[in-house]
């Protein structure tokens, strides 16, 4: 589990390094960049992912006390909040393209798409993993003593959440 998580961390560490170098070379573009993006959408992603992570953490605790029904409910809630991320992404992309913020809109927007689309791919893997874990929980595959699959998924989802907590201020706040 941790090998996969460290691969994810390494991938984003490299992308963050590229971001910092690009920002150092184009300070004006990056200073003006956040004003082009929707802070409401950025905050919305953050709240959706944090709330989804909270539900998954509660699901894990429910399983530890053998409450499978509560675990399933928390996981389903986590999935619904997790879906909020791609849902907001659709609205934000429509807004961005309407404003002409596409791949030709300069170094800030290109960096933004690189990092956020890579993160979106990780969120998709997480949502698919969550469906799998929900199904396994529903079929009674986990117990209070043995729920390593649920734990592994929770770790992945929280790290994906952490990565977003780093991406969000870089693009939406640092003007």
């Amino acid at each position: 589990m941790w090998v996969g998580i460290f691969c994810e961390i390494t991938e984003f560490a490299l992308l963050f390094a590229v971001f910092f170098v690009a920002r150092a070379h184009h300070p004006e573009a990056f200073r003006a960049g956040p004003d082009q993006l929707s802070l409401l959408a950025g905050t919305g992603y953050t709240l959706m992912l944090l709330t989804s992570g909270w539900c998954v953490a509660r699901a894990l605790h429910a399983m530890r006390r053998s409450d499978r029904t509560a675990c399933l409910r928390w996981m389903l809630a986590g999935f619904v909040f997790g879906l909020g991320y791609p849902a907001i992404k659709i609205f934000e992309l429509q807004r961005n393209f309407a404003l002409g913020l596409d791949g030709d809109a300069g170094v800030f927007i290109v960096s933004y798409y690189y990092l956020t689309f890579t993160h979106l791919v990780h969120v998709f893997w997480g949502l698919l993993g969550m469906l799998w874990v929900i199904a396994r929980t529903g079929f009674g595959a986990y117990t209070a003593e043995e729920h390593s699959g649920l734990e592994a998924f929770a770790c992945y989802w929280h790290v994906t959440d952490m990565i977003w907590l780093m991406i969000f201020p870089l693009f939406y706040l640092l003007g």
Binding site: T43, T46, L50, Y172, L173
Partner: peptide, 15 residues
């Protein structure tokens, strides 16, 4: 979680 939500909203204000 509550702290994280408050910090996210407050942090957006700082930015």
């Amino acid at each position: 979680w509550l702290m994280l939500v408050l910090l996210s909203v407050g942090g957006a204000g700082i930015g």
